[in-house]
Structure formats: structure tokens, C-alpha cells
């Protein structure tokens, strides 16, 4: 009994937090999305969303970009995480990985503007090796590059943790039973680290759907995601209803992505 009451006291801050910062905003968002600019109750926002070619294309574009960013981060992260967990100074590598996240995202974006601009070092280099100046800023390429850079730690950390947690005796056993490096990786390590990959995808995909700061600074608004539309509705047109509707669509999409990534058939994990 006593134990139970301590537990509920300990739970109290978390419940309060959930109520104030998760459920209340969500309800407000739903409420706002049912108001038009004159403050009347209506479902016209959601109808507009699904009948407007603009929003549908924008959603598809956002998805494609977010998918690309997630795929590239995963492709870079997994092998790197695999190698890093086998090095001697794991903690140091992990530290170096977290370090860039301590720097403000705007500063990093501005740094990239300097690096990728016409007079930047990348173009100087291209010039010296004879390729000549290229337009790098304001292209899909630069947007995906910078977004990948920024999201990388959020993909790599969970994967590193997952690989780290694998019982080394399983790997030993695999080698003892005659599997080579590659077979061990494919049959033991990858399946056992899928949890990390899943959290990585969830942590990267959703924020990538609405990276509005980068779309302007690096993409020069030549790359448009749902974030651009939300920003516009809240700041310029004061159409909070429409902005909230797009926000809700993002939340729903997030649940779908969670569901999809969680439902991938998990094999019975032996030994754990």
C-alpha cells in the first residue's frame, strides 16, 4: 500500500507534464483546427486541405524529402555506428557525435551558407580542380545535405546504443559456429539492432517533414515543406485554423509512421 502511494506521488509530475504539455496543446490544436478565420466552427479547413492541389503536392513533396533525408542518414549512420561501437574509445566517439548538437541550429545553417556559397571553399575547390563554379546553395542537394548533417546524431545515437547492447557472447557464438564477419552482421547484429534503427527513423523522419528554417536559409524557398505553410499561416495570414489543421495532419502522419515502424515483423529474439 505504502509502496503504491509513493509510486503515485512519483508519477504525479509526469502526469501533470503530460496533461499540460501533451494533451492540452493537442486539444487546443484540434480546437483551433475547427475554427475558420472569422472564429466560426467549421470543418472547412480539413476539406480545404484534402481538396487543394497545393497542400496535397506539398505533403507529397515533404514526404519525399523527409524520406530521402531519413534514408541518407540511415545509410551513413549504420555503418559508422557499427564501426564506432567496435573501436576502443567508444565514449570519446559518442561525445564527438553529440558535440555538434550543442551548437545552435541557426549557427550551423549560417555556417553552411558560407561553405556552399559562390565564393565559399567548396566552390573554390571545384574551381581549382577545373570543374568550375556550381550553384550549390538553394538546390535540393544542399537542402538534403544540411538536413542530413543536422539529423545525423539523432539517427546514430539509438543505433549505437542498440548495437552496444547486443550480448558479445552472441557474436562470439556466431563466429564459433563458423559464420564470417558479414554473416554475423547480417544474421545477428542487424536484426538485434532493429530497435535502434526504428527509434532513429522516428526521431529523424517526423522533424524532417517540417524543417522550415532550412527550407528558407539553405533551400532558398525553392524547397517547400509543410513547415513553410504552417509558418505562413501562423505568422503572416493569421489563419491559425489552417495552420493547426496542417499540424494535426503531421501528428496523424507521425502516428502512421510509428505504427509502420513498430509493426515490422520482429523475429523471436533468442537469448534476450
Amino acid at each position: 500500500m505504502n509502496k503504491k502511494s509513493t509510486q503515485s506521488t512519483m508519477l504525479f509530475p509526469y502526469v501533470l507534464w503530460l496533461a499540460l504539455f501533451v494533451f492540452a496543446p493537442l486539444l487546443l490544436l484540434i480546437y483551433q483546427s475547427l475554427l475558420n478565420i472569422d472564429g466560426q466552427f467549421t470543418i472547412e479547413n480539413i476539406v480545404t486541405y484534402f481538396t487543394s492541389a497545393t497542400y496535397i503536392t506539398m505533403t507529397i513533396q515533404s514526404f519525399i524529402f523527409a524520406g530521402f533525408i531519413t534514408a541518407v542518414t540511415l545509410l551513413v549512420s549504420y555503418p559508422a555506428a557499427y564501426v564506432l561501437t567496435r573501436t576502443e574509445h567508444k565514449e570519446l566517439w559518442r561525445m564527438l557525435l553529440i558535440l555538434p548538437t550543442w551548437i545552435n541550429i541557426l549557427l550551423k545553417a549560417y555556417a553552411f551558407i558560407g561553405i556552399l556559397s559562390q565564393s565559399g571553399p567548396v566552390n573554390e575547390f571545384l574551381e581549382t580542380i577545373g570543374i568550375g563554379h556550381q550553384q550549390i546553395l538553394f538546390t535540393n542537394f544542399s537542402f538534403i545535405l544540411v538536413a542530413t548533417y543536422i539529423e545525423l546524431p539523432f539517427m546514430m545515437m539509438p543505433i549505437m546504443n542498440a548495437i552496444n547492447e547486443i550480448d558479445p557472447s552472441l557474436i562470439k557464438a556466431s563466429h564459433d559456429l563458423g559464420a564470417n564477419e558479414w554473416e554475423t552482421l547480417r544474421n545477428i547484429i542487424i536484426p538485434l539492432s532493429m530497435n535502434g534503427v526504428r527509434s532513429g527513423i522516428q526521431a529523424v523522419f517526423i522533424p524532417s517533414l517540417s524543417l522550415f528554417m532550412l527550407t528558407r536559409l539553405i533551400g532558398g524557398n525553392r524547397v517547400i515543406t509543410l513547415g513553410t505553410a504552417i509558418e505562413q499561416h501562423f505568422l503572416v495570414t493569421q489563419n491559425w485554423g489552417m495552420g493547426s489543421t496542417i499540424g494535426i495532419v503531421l501528428v496523424v502522419l507521425m502516428f502512421i509512421v510509428m505504427k509502420l515502424t513498430n509493426n515490422t515483423p520482429t523475429r523471436k529474439r533468442g537469448g534476450r
Binding site: 551558407i113 550553384q135 546553395l137 538553394f138 528558407r216 536559409l217 532558398g220 524557398n221 525553392r222
Partner: peptide, 8 residues
């Protein structure tokens, strides 16, 4: 149009 930006 190359880019649509603000103060930058």
C-alpha cells in the same frame, strides 16, 4: 528565381 529569402 534563384531563391526567395529574407534579410539574408
Amino acid at each position: 528565381v534563384k531563391a526567395i529569402v529574407a534579410d539574408e
